[in-house]
Design a protein around this nucleic acid. Sequence first.
DNA 1: GCGCTTCGGTACGCCAGCGAACATACCCCG
DNA 2: CGGGGTATGTTCGCTGGCGTACCGAAGCGC
Lengths: 241, 241
Amino acid sequence: MTPPASSGPRGQKAHRNRLLRALPRADYQRLGPHLRALSLTFKQSLFEPLKPIPYVYFIESAVISLVTKLDNGEVIEVATIGNEGLAGLPVFLGAVSSPGWAFAQIPGEALRVKAAVFRDEVGQGGGLQGLLKRYTQALFNQIAQSAACNRAHGLEQRCARWLLMTLDRVGAPEFSLTHEFMSQMLGVRRATVTLAAGALQSAGYIEYRRGRVKVVDRARLEARACGCYRVIRDEYERLVP
Amino acid sequence: MTPPASSGPRGQKAHRNRLLRALPRADYQRLGPHLRALSLTFKQSLFEPLKPIPYVYFIESAVISLVTKLDNGEVIEVATIGNEGLAGLPVFLGAVSSPGWAFAQIPGEALRVKAAVFRDEVGQGGGLQGLLKRYTQALFNQIAQSAACNRAHGLEQRCARWLLMTLDRVGAPEFSLTHEFMSQMLGVRRATVTLAAGALQSAGYIEYRRGRVKVVDRARLEARACGCYRVIRDEYERLVP
DNA sequence: GCGCTTCGGTACGCCAGCGAACATACCCCG
DNA sequence: CGGGGTATGTTCGCTGGCGTACCGAAGCGC
């Protein structure tokens, strides 16, 4: 299903990444030769706060967390990135580094390109430019919605939203996840996640056992989540079809 | 101090807007003739959720709130925009509209340009493109930091941060502000703001009377705020000097 | 200077989520 | 098959902020 990590790309439409698929042919032909497939392992770091961002990653099947590290050392997730997008947007936006931190939340495949090469390619104008702008807008919207959501909605709703967003990006109904990890992403205690997840489980929306979750009733899970989920998803659809 | 609202711009360096000042001369000469100065009144709306964004506003002395409207009707601020930037970024990013909502939080001057004209000008490439990308990155960072901050920090710290960010953009140590308004921006109850603001007042950092605040000890207010304030400010300095 | 509106202060009971523990259950590895 | 480590379950008291409500006071328009 996924090509071996060492092989190069074998044609635009073989990719699962939506940005690469949407790229005009001519742009892809310039960019393609610089793409290098690789597998990302759990918690593998893609770039770190205020250090130069070395590569831009087009995500195929992994799921990336974009987090902000606070003064007290706590990290909080501000966005989730999957095959709809790319990690390393600051490079597109003309920054060498950013205060954010990106790592793989779910292991999987990605294609990377050196930051300098990517910057050059973007500099050519072309279709990549516009595509990435629209993607920026969608990611922008995701973060803005999360910011509001973090303030206004209770844990159970946010928990449901988070599961759905990860679910969409993983593609499979079951994936690895501990309460501990989720608690960090959501910025709450582990014990509090246990309660919220327990509620979702006993309601019959999800099932989990020791580090694995399975969504069994997606529709009702979505009904339980806050509207933020839909707002974010719809905006992605609208901007990066 | 501010030009009459009806007059056109009288030269690039007369502007207080940092983007316009940083714009290469050639770009400014193309864009300048399309700029139209106007005064923004309190709560004047610049664009609304999912409606076409008619104008892009370069802010001179007003302060703009970018808010997200939630399903329950509540609005929460996700970013503050002042003379360091511009309202209507989705136009730059190739969107016709956005789920956000922008309005004047503090009245003042701005220069606006029709969205279509702005889009054309950006399409020319040039210096505007890169400048706006870096600005996008800075705004991006502001929102990401706010998202984390909203989750992690107590009201008093966020309150201090908010006051500082507005202060920086207003330019004057005193400005109009009610507890009620601030409570909406911060996503808390009015009564809770009264407590937090009261604490800051009795600590001697600020003074207020019926809808006006005055910051009397900026340094100590900054010490009371969370580190998010500095992270956001420094990133603006770094990207849009 | 009067009255109305708007803003701020305060109080009540309530609840989500906190911090810190400790108890259990699962699963992998030896 | 039996540890040991890791994940989950549960408890305790605590606190920040909630919803609601009422009151006083400042300012504005007349």
